[in-house]
């Protein structure tokens, strides 16, 4: 991975204000809305905060795929091929940038959550939960970049949307996981976003199978990293 390129990509990310506000703002807005509807005590507020934190991380990282697809079809990646920069290095930079955007989005949700709770906030728990959400966004940053490498530019958006909604549903974003039908929860337990939510809820007193959570997330991260390596390695010939 090239440091100059990664820094330039992060600077470009911060310059695209409209995309930044939309990506980070939507989950935060939903959180404010849901909290106004159901957030009668701090327990419900923190649960909603984590749910929307998961959503923020998913939406920001998966949308990175659309950017990769755009750059691929506009010819920018072709231009890069005229330099010694490797496709794999490009993929790692793009994953890093996706992760940075995801971390920003999650942090904004938590900042608003902190402001809502004021003095009643459990700061150590919030910090731990935030860090877990950051880490949990890694497999989805890889997934986003992988999505951008395949298919047409026109289908990048809808494909990303399908993956986002599926992951959000299995991650308990729209319906709390314990309220899913039991068959559904059994399926969700094989999916990373389920465990991101479960892990990030744990600091606030929920119980979680830590071993299974870590194993599932690690397996998905390694699997997606291997796919990225294979897909972008092929582009290198």
């Amino acid at each position: 991975m090239n440091a100059t390129y990664t820094v330039l990509e992060i600077r470009r990310l911060l310059r695209d204000r409209a995309a930044l506000v939309l990506t980070a703002g939507l989950p935060t807005g939903l959180f404010v809305l849901y909290n106004a509807m159901w957030g009668d005590d701090t327990g419900a507020t923190t649960e909603l905060m984590v749910m929307m934190g998961v959503f923020a991380g998913l939406a920001a990282t998966i949308s990175a795929g659309g950017r990769v697809s755009l750059e691929r079809h506009s010819g920018w990646t072709r231009q890069l091929r005229l330099s010694p920069l490797r496709p794999l290095s490009y993929a790692l930079t793009k994953s890093t940038v996706a992760l940075v955007l995801g971390m920003l989005a999650v942090t904004l949700v938590f900042a608003v959550g902190l402001a809502m709770q004021g003095g009643g906030a459990d700061l150590p728990a919030m910090g731990e939960s935030l860090a877990l959400l950051w880490l949990g966004s890694i497999p989805f940053a890889l997934a986003g970049v992988l999505l951008g490498q395949v298919g047409s530019a026109g289908s990048a958006q809808p494909r990303g949307m399908v993956v986002l909604l599926g992951s959000a549903f299995l991650g308990g974003v729209f319906v709390p996981i314990d309220q899913l039908p039991s068959g559904m929860e059994a399926v969700a337990q094989w999916y990373p976003s389920y465990w991101i939510d479960a892990l990030a809820q744990a600091p606030f007193g929920e119980s979680v199978d830590v071993l299974r959570a870590v194993l599932t997330l690690a397996a998905w991260t390694l699997g997606l990293a291997a796919l990225v390596r294979w897909r972008y390695g092929r582009a290198e010939r």
Binding site: Y5, L8, R12
Partner: peptide
Amino acid sequence: DGAMLADATVGELAALFAAVH
């Protein structure tokens, strides 16, 4: 058809190519 990168200056693009060569 080598496209330019949005939200980057000409100088930054040249600096990027200089950094990888």
